[in-house]
């Protein structure tokens, strides 16, 4: 069954005043909000700018503020988003530079993400020498069951939702931010290299690191992937303080 969905969308172009526009979009009743956003483009205005790719919460591109909350519209059913409301309200993420309409500039965010150096798997790098893979090697890349946890994509899909929800990010964009700090925490857990770990902790301990967080825990509340950046920041603090205390007494 098709339903008519009223939607109020944030419209903006550089040099013009931001404003809202209202549309009616027809979608199937089991559609998700990204289908409605895409419908604004398909049915009403081909100049409408929005981000999307995978439609199953893996790419992290489509994050917006839906009815005032940070959400991935690709996994929110329209009926759920409309419950008890006259219309959907869709705005871009906060705390990012605006590009146009719902599109924000994620460059600075990804630059911070890169700092943790966290990648999904390094298993294949040893074979960059160009040697052909032995069959047994191919299958061992799949890994033993218990080791496979690290041969996986990170839960963090780098959608930027935590950046938009974080009150500290509202005050300064120099703060490393919840996602990057969660990445750093994750990298400290998996690295076997003491020096790398110390460097990662130094990054977290820097001026714009974990100490700028003021424990609103909005990142953890809003994360669609249960990454718990707030918890990660607190764990980093404990580790940093623990090391300093140890250094004070142990290493003298």
């Amino acid at each position: 069954m098709a339903i008519q969905v009223p939607i109020k969308v944030f419209r903006y172009r550089p040099g013009t005043a931001p404003h809202f526009e209202r549309y009616q979009v027809t979608v199937p009743d089991d559609a998700t909000v990204i289908d409605v956003i895409e419908g604004v483009w398909a049915e009403h205005d081909r100049n409408f700018m929005f981000r999307h790719a995978c439609h199953h919460a893996s790419c992290g591109t489509c994050a917006v503020r839906l009815n005032g909350y940070e959400r991935l519209p690709c996994i929110v059913p329209v009926t759920e988003a409309l419950a008890g409301r006259q219309e959907l309200v869709v705005e871009p993420l906060r705390n990012f530079p605006l590009v146009g309409d719902l599109v924000v500039d994620v460059a600075g965010f990804f630059q911070k993400q890169a700092a943790s150096g966290l990648v999904i798997t390094r298993a294949a790098e040893a074979t960059l020498s160009g040697q052909p893979f032995a069959h047994s090697e191919l299958f061992s890349q799949a890994g033993a069951l218990e080791e496979r946890a690290y041969n996986r994509f990170e839960n963090c899909i780098e959608c930027g939702i935590c950046i938009s929800a974080c009150p500290t990010m509202a005050a300064t964009d120099k703060f490393w931010g919840p996602a990057a700090l969660a990445g750093i925490r994750r990298a400290t857990l998996t690295t076997g290299d003491c020096q790398e770990k110390a460097a990662l902790l130094a990054l977290a301990d820097s001026e714009q690191g974990v100490w700028r967080c003021h424990s609103a825990f909005e990142c953890t509340e809003s994360c669609p992937q249960d990454v718990d950046p707030g918890g990660a920041i607190m764990s980093l603090r404990r580790e940093i303080v623990g090391r300093k205390v140890k250094h004070l007494f142990g290493a003298g």
């Binding site: 530079p97 911070k112 009150p167 964009d173 120099k174 609103a216 707030g230």
Partner: peptide, 30 residues
């Protein structure tokens, strides 16, 4: 690391905006 371009509108007062936020944010603002 370059700083982000500061083309975004400043929203410093957002730290005090507890609308639609969870308890952690209330604690933060309080």
């Amino acid at each position: 690391m370059q700083a982000e371009k500061s083309t975004r509108p400043r929203q410093v007062w957002q730290w005090a905006d507890v609308r639609r936020r969870k308890l952690g944010m209330w604690a933060y603002t309080l």
